[in-house]
């Protein structure tokens, strides 16, 4: 059985994956047994659903500015269409011969192919959504990188104006993503990183204020204050980088690495 790494994909595909597995087992146990029923109507329903998915998929490709999605999604759509054609062939063949063994094979290959290709398509879409979150994470990293050149309170105010909305978006989106993951360990890492960031952010701002204050008062202890500020910025950078790493993991990656 395939492993789906988000709850949304799992809820869509897990029931059909179980049905396809059962069909394969039944086919192996009862090959050339009873005649197949007329499957024209249910195959037509699948074909119509595939036509709609291909239409929606093409619209998604055309409207997206994600080059990886534009590159990966068409292949998945072609595979869905090809599997649908196998089902149509199976249906025609079974109408002529309800015992046809090649038709049964096409039925299994077609339904399994639809499952795999739809899974690939949803994964492609999901990865594109993840890349949007990662883009936000990179914005936060860019702001953190300038923390050490902030020298005045006015600059600090502007720094906060830039960083705060970005950090809020990352927090909101990563929190939602964490709830979506089926992989508990990955979800827990994201929660832990978010908690760290929420703790570190106000301390970083405080350390920047202290640095600015010390510099404005003549500079004694400025070096230590700068070190402390840089350390906190680095800690936050590490947490964001860990979020980026975990966001890109799927359960499949983990199994492969194991």
């Amino acid at each position: 059985m395939p492993v789906f790494h988000t709850k949304t994909i799992e809820s869509i595909l897990d029931p059909v994956a179980q049905q396809v597995s059962k069909l394969v087992i039944l086919h192996e146990e009862a090959e050339d047994g009873l005649p197949m029923p007329d499957l024209q109507q249910p195959v037509r329903s699948v074909s119509n659903a595939v036509l709609n998915l291909v239409k929606v998929g093409r619209e998604t490709i055309n409207s997206s500015d994600d080059q990886i999605l534009k590159q990966d999604m068409p292949g998945a759509l072609v595979r869905v269409e090809r599997s649908s054609k196998l089902l149509e062939e199976a249906s025609r063949m079974l109408k002529d011969d309800p015992y046809s063994s090649p038709a049964r094979k096409r039925l299994i290959d077609g339904s399994g192919g639809i499952l795999q290709a739809t899974s690939a398509l949803l994964l492609c879409f999901d990865e594109s959504e993840v890349r949007k979150i990662i883009r936000e994470c990179h914005r936060v990293l860019d702001y953190l990188a300038v923390a050490e050149v902030i020298e005045t309170l006015d600059e600090l105010v502007q720094f906060l104006r830039d960083l705060s909305p970005c950090l809020s978006r990352v927090s909101r989106e990563v929190s939602a993503r964490e709830k979506e993951l089926t992989h508990q360990v990955h979800a827990e890492i994201l929660v832990r990183c978010l908690e760290q960031i929420k703790t570190l952010a106000p301390i970083l701002i405080c350390s920047m204020k202290i640095y600015i204050h010390i510099v404005s008062q003549g500079g004694k202890g400025a070096e230590e204050a700068a070190e402390n500020r840089n350390y906190l910025a680095m800690r936050m950078t590490d947490e964001i980088n860990e979020i980026i790493r975990v966001l890109q993991l799927t359960s499949y990656d983990e199994e492969t690495s194991e």
Partner: peptide, 29 residues
């Protein structure tokens, strides 16, 4: 998202098809 809705429709239709195809075989087992 429309793509999720479209995938749900495919999953439901494929599930119905596979159930129909399985029914006859199940009788035999």
């Amino acid at each position: 998202e429309m793509i999720l809705e479209a995938a749900k429709s495919i999953a439901a239709a494929t599930s119905a098809l596979v159930k129909a195809a399985s029914a006859a075989q199940r009788e035999l087992i």
